[in-house]
């Protein structure tokens, strides 16, 4: 079973990493932060950077290879990356299914 608390920390570490290259608005580390889409702080390049950083951090923290970038849908109506919360749930589900 994936530890939700641990996964949030993993996500926040990846956000820290991406914030160091973001110009202007940074990603606030809270679940309701808008990430991508109309209200989001990330453009497509920012989102790719975030997903790459999350993949790397999950590998480090959980020892699991999660492929987020392989089937990435960058259209702005993708709900999975809308907020930190939706991204978290998406990753949690993916990890859980991989584990199962």
């Amino acid at each position: 079973m994936i530890d939700r608390e641990k996964l949030i920390n993993t996500l926040y570490k990846a956000i820290d990493e991406v914030n160091s290259i973001l110009e202007g608005d940074k990603i606030c580390k809270s679940m309701d932060t808008s990430l991508y889409g109309d209200l989001g702080v990330l453009d497509s390049l920012g989102l790719i950077n975030l997903l790459a950083a999350i993949e790397e951090q999950i590998e480090k923290d959980f020892g699991i290879t999660l492929l987020l970038l392989d089937d990435i849908d960058l259209s702005e109506d993708t709900n999975d990356f809308c907020t930190v919360s939706t991204l978290f749930e998406y990753i949690f589900l993916r990890l859980s299914s991989q584990e199962g």
């Binding site: 990493e17 290259i21 497509s44 390049l45 790719i48 950077n49 790459a52 950083a53 993949e55 790397e56 970038l69 990435i72």
Partner: peptide, 20 residues
């Protein structure tokens, strides 16, 4: 982490961020 093929194929970023 010098070269990250994923960043290259998805965004044409030639190097990992540690290099930058």
């Amino acid at each position: 982490s010098s070269f990250n093929p994923k960043l290259w194929y998805t965004a044409k970023i030639a190097f990992g961020n540690e290099v930058f």
